[in-house]
């Protein structure tokens, strides 16, 4: 899992570089950056209080715990219980809240802007996540990630179709959650089109490092779930699923970022609602297929 988290960003950068015809950064350049950040001191804004200093810890802590529930194909997660799908989604929400409040604590209009957008997009993407999880639960009759993916192994055609579709939906959700093009562009934070990056403007040193690591972990959670869905359909082995997660997430994000520009801000809500609608569509396709199975 941790390896996945570490390598996804590398693959993204490399894909982008290759597609743009550049040589690109070193593969682990982002890890180097973090290790530099971890060795630095910090500058805090006068306006901020204790909450601002605790927020990065909450962000990282919540992402870390969320990671513990996600299985990598046949590799069982460290923790699991009925309903942990809800907990994972809400832990990610907790990390979001921590960052939003920290951003508001700086009193900067830029960060307020980012916070406002993040809160809205987070609210709109939540149903998509839950619907995708509900589809999984519908097929497997369980509501814990570990059980879902371990019972879903029986390969029948309908399940394969639905799982592939779900993988697609999860990748889309990852775009939104991780603040990637076309919803948000992590490369800029000095324009009026920013969401996630702008909220971290006032963090420095260790705090910034924590937020970056937390971001990778969140990314990895979604990437691995997507890869699991695909792995169920194709080949259910962790040797397959882990690289699949990296490649799926890395290539899709890298290619999207190279090929298209970021959305106009007003179109973002439409985009996110489309993802939700797709999620609902997959659920209904799955529902119909399942009914069909029962009749035959």
């Amino acid at each position: 899992m941790l390896l996945v988290a570490l390598t996804v960003t590398g693959v993204i950068n490399r894909t982008r570089a290759v597609l743009a015809g550049r040589k690109g950064l070193r593969f682990f350049q982002h890890v180097m950056d973090i290790s530099v950040l971890l060795r630095k001191g910090a500058v805090y804004s006068d306006v901020t209080g204790t909450l601002f200093r605790i927020a990065p810890c909450v962000y990282l802590g919540a992402s870390l715990l969320a990671l513990l529930f996600v299985p990598v194909a046949d590799l069982d997660p460290l923790l699991s219980f009925h309903g942990d799908v809800v907990l994972v989604a809400y832990l990610l929400a907790l990390s979001r809240v921590a960052l939003i409040l920290a951003a508001l604590d700086t009193g900067s209009s830029f960060e307020g802007m980012g916070a406002s957008r993040e809160a809205l997009y987070g609210a709109l993407i939540e149903p998509a996540i839950m619907l995708a999880m509900a589809t999984l639960a519908m097929f497997c009759g369980y509501s814990s990630l570990a059980d879902i993916f371990s019972t879903a192994r029986s390969l029948d055609v309908n399940l394969t179709i639905v799982m592939l579709l779900l993988g697609y939906v999860f990748i889309k959700i990852m775009f939104v959650e991780a603040g990637r093009v076309p919803v948000d562009d992590p490369r800029t934070h000095l324009e009026l089109t920013m969401v996630h990056e702008v909220m971290c403007l006032d963090f420095s040193g260790i705090d910034l490092a924590m937020i970056h690591i937390g971001g990778w972990l969140k990314n990895a959670v979604m990437a691995v779930i997507a890869a699991d869905a695909v792995a169920v359909a194709v080949c259910f082995r962790w040797e397959f699923a882990a690289p699949a997660a990296v490649l799926l997430a890395g290539l899709s994000v890298g290619i999207t970022e190279s090929l298209r520009a970021r959305n106009k801000l007003a179109r973002n809500t439409t985009y996110i609602l489309t993802v939700t609608a797709m999620s609902a569509l997959v659920l209904f396709v799955g529902y119909l297929l399942m009914k069909n199975i029962e009749i035959v």
Partner: peptide, 15 residues
């Protein structure tokens, strides 16, 4: 970690 390093405060970054 921070106790040994320079931690300063300044106004919020106004871009």
């Amino acid at each position: 970690a921070q106790s040994k390093r320079t931690v300063s405060s300044s106004p919020t970054w106004g871009c």
